[in-house]
Amino acid sequence: MTQRHHLRGVLLASTACILWGISGVAASTLFKQNSAITPLWLTQIRMITAGLILLIASQVSGQQPWQVWRQPRTAGRLISYGLLGLIPVQWCYFEAVKVGNAPIATIIQFLGPFIISIYYFLFKHVTPNRSEAIGMVIAFIGTLLIVTHGHLNSLAISPAVLFWGGLSAIGVATNTLLPRPLLPKFGPMNITGWGLLVAGIFLMAMHPLWLVHVTLTWSQWLLLLVIILLGTVAPFLMFAHSLSDILPTTASLLDAFEPLAATVFSVLFLNVQLTSFDLVGGLMIIFAVMLLSMNVRKMMTLLHRRRLDS
């Protein structure tokens, strides 16, 4: 791997994470400008449109998107990925953005890697090492600062933000774990495309899109395109391509750009007011996740050795 390729991978992953952060700010703007737009409606539009774009791109590039449905086992896992992974990580995140704001929702969602670590500890018996344990303590303190602003007898954010943000953080974990066995064989474009489409169709069945009457201005159409193209399709392709140039651990460290971007753009363009507790707590969570990410490869190596020994 040359230095040029490494730099390209870092730039692609960083840009992808920034675009994901911007999509949260764009969604927050839509919710404020148009009361008819709900998180469920926006998620349906985003999932179905982005899923179709990715699958069409996969078909055009000869990646055979229909292969994944030929085996019941892989089809079942793909459906689980869409329903249990993508729905909470996208719909619940937008719900947290609407009842709160993009920076806080993104920071709470950023706790997802710790849920993955807890999963490996409980079900794979992989014990957190010292830096991971320290990271968990720092993340807990940071979350406590955001939630209470230093007053342990009261909440500084609404329970709804905590509820939806917590579900989106769990979604980050399931969104990471469920598709892992499918990605090497079928490719990230196919798996993500089908996952988005399955999730979008399920949400449509739960609450049909046409029951919500939404009239958009030209600027709101533009924000919707930003969320679909720049906030979903483009960053996915960039992040997937970056993994051929940099290690996954490096890419996961660059995830910190997402909450940072959501915070900066919300303050600049939405006049969102964040307290010192929010800023310090958010930085603590970002630092804690970076500590955890630096040990992901060691954790996966240990898990692989245990599988070989069993």
Results as ranks from 00 to 15, higher is better:
M1S: 12
H5A: 15
L12F: 15
L19H: 07
F31N: 04
P39I: 14
P39W: 06
W41L: 09
Q44V: 09
I53L: 14
L55A: 10
V60A: 14
V68N: 03
T74Y: 13
G76T: 12
S80T: 14
G82S: 09
F94Q: 06
E95H: 12
F110T: 05
G112A: 15
I115G: 01
Y120L: 13
Y120K: 04
K124C: 04
P128I: 08
P128G: 09
R130E: 04
E132Y: 02
A133L: 11
F140T: 15
H149I: 08
L155Y: 11
P159G: 13
F163C: 08
W164Y: 12
G165Q: 01
I170F: 14
G171N: 05
T174D: 02
T176R: 02
L177W: 07
R180M: 12
L183Q: 07
F186C: 02
T192V: 09
I201M: 10
L203G: 00
L203A: 08
M206L: 12
W210H: 11
L211W: 10
H213E: 13
H213M: 10
T215G: 06
T217G: 08
W218F: 10
W218K: 06
W221T: 06
W221D: 04
L224F: 08
L225N: 05
I227C: 03
I227F: 05
A234N: 07
A240P: 00
H241T: 14
S244W: 06
D245W: 13
D245P: 00
L247K: 11
T250A: 15
L253W: 00
L254T: 08
E258D: 07
E258C: 11
F269M: 11
L270M: 10
G282R: 00
M284T: 04
I285C: 07
I286W: 04
I286M: 07
A288I: 06
A288S: 09
V289L: 11
L292F: 13
M294H: 11
N295T: 08
M300C: 05
R306K: 12
R307V: 10
L308S: 06
L308K: 09
